[in-house]
Design a protein around this nucleic acid. Sequence first.
DNA 1: CGGTATCCTGGCTGATACTG
DNA 2: CAGTATCAGCCAGGATACCG
Lengths: 112, 112
Amino acid sequence: MNNQDEQRLEECYCPAQKALSILGGKWTLSIIRELSSGTKRFGQLQKSLKGISPKTLSARLQELEKQAIVTKEIYLEVPPRVEYSLTTKGESLKKILLDLVKWGTENLRSED
Amino acid sequence: MNNQDEQRLEECYCPAQKALSILGGKWTLSIIRELSSGTKRFGQLQKSLKGISPKTLSARLQELEKQAIVTKEIYLEVPPRVEYSLTTKGESLKKILLDLVKWGTENLRSED
DNA sequence: CGGTATCCTGGCTGATACTG
DNA sequence: CAGTATCAGCCAGGATACCG
């Protein structure tokens, strides 16, 4: 790591903090993973993510949508149909997440 | 992103989840930032991180030490002196964090 | 089907006092 | 100085019921 990087590391952690606060939600990573394999409906997500409550799923999706990581498509049908998918910005997250997977795998104790 | 990466993304998010749970602590990033500029004592950290309680600082340091991200050096003196510093593993985190800073800066809404 | 409203709980954190 | 002990508060998340 060069001095330029070192400098930036010292001064600007806020965006990283915010990114962590968003990605750190209990189900956020799982939601992104589900959507990374393609568009899914609310019910499909709820079914895949066994154990998540509709309230939490809704909250996380709204947060991800606000950050433009996920888009929501509403079809005016009966019964209603709503589809969620990753945006380009969401796709750009994958690289970071893969780095995190790699680092975690190499460096974290799996116990406890 | 190639197919190999995509595959890994689908299957192994657990380490990323764990990494996020560790890094996501309210003060964790700040502690790492403080230590990235060099070895510091408990009191120094407490003073730099204005507002952190000794209980929380102790808890986060113990967690980081358990993951070997931080090392603790105890000097048997009166008054006691204890120094904390980043390990090589801790240093290796900087790259990930810089990527996170970069991604967050480019992609996250700063409002709300 | 796709949510929202309500109530409730556990865990992280803060404040503060105390100890080796 | 470097923590631990204790008590209290907040908030993400869980369970469940209900609505357009």
